[in-house]
Computed example of a mutant assay.
Amino acid sequence: MTLLQDHSLEMTGKDVPELEEAVPLIPAGTRVNVTFLSSEDLPTRLTAAAAVKASGLVPVPHIAARRLTSEGDLRRFLEALRDAGVSEHIFVIGGDPAEPMGPYTSALDVIRSGLLPGYGVRHVSVAGYPEGHPDISDGDLWSALRDKTAALAQQGLGGSIITQFGFDDDPIVSWIERVRGLGIDLPIRIGVPGPAGIKRLLGFARRFGIASSAGIVKKYGLSLTNLVGTAGPDRLIGALERRIDPARHGDVLLHFYTFGGVAATARWIRQFDTVGAPGAR
Rank of each mutant, 00 (worst) to 15 (best):
L3W: 01
L4Y: 01
L4E: 03
Q5F: 10
Q5L: 13
D6Y: 02
S8L: 04
L9E: 03
L9T: 00
M11D: 02
G13C: 10
D15C: 05
L19C: 10
E21M: 06
A22I: 06
L25S: 09
I26A: 06
R31W: 13
N33G: 11
F36D: 07
P43L: 14
R45E: 14
V52F: 13
V60S: 06
P61V: 11
I63G: 04
A64K: 06
R67A: 14
S70Q: 11
D73M: 07
D73E: 10
L78S: 04
D83I: 00
A84E: 14
S87R: 00
A98G: 04
P100K: 02
D109A: 15
V110K: 13
I111S: 02
L116A: 11
G120S: 10
H123M: 11
V124G: 06
S125N: 14
S125T: 14
G128I: 07
Y129L: 07
H133N: 06
D135W: 14
I136L: 15
G139N: 15
D140T: 15
D147V: 11
K148H: 08
A151K: 01
Q155A: 00
I161G: 01
T163D: 04
T163V: 07
Q164C: 08
D168E: 14
D170E: 15
V173P: 01
V173E: 07
S174G: 12
G181F: 05
I190Y: 05
I190R: 05
G194P: 01
P195I: 07
P195N: 07
G203W: 04
A205M: 05
A214E: 15
G215Y: 13
L227A: 13
R235V: 14
L236F: 10
A239I: 00
R242Y: 07
I244D: 04
H249L: 06
H249N: 04
D251W: 08
V252H: 01
L253A: 15
H255K: 03
Y257L: 03
Y257M: 09
F259A: 12
G260E: 05
R267G: 09
R270G: 00
F272S: 07
T274Q: 14
T274L: 11
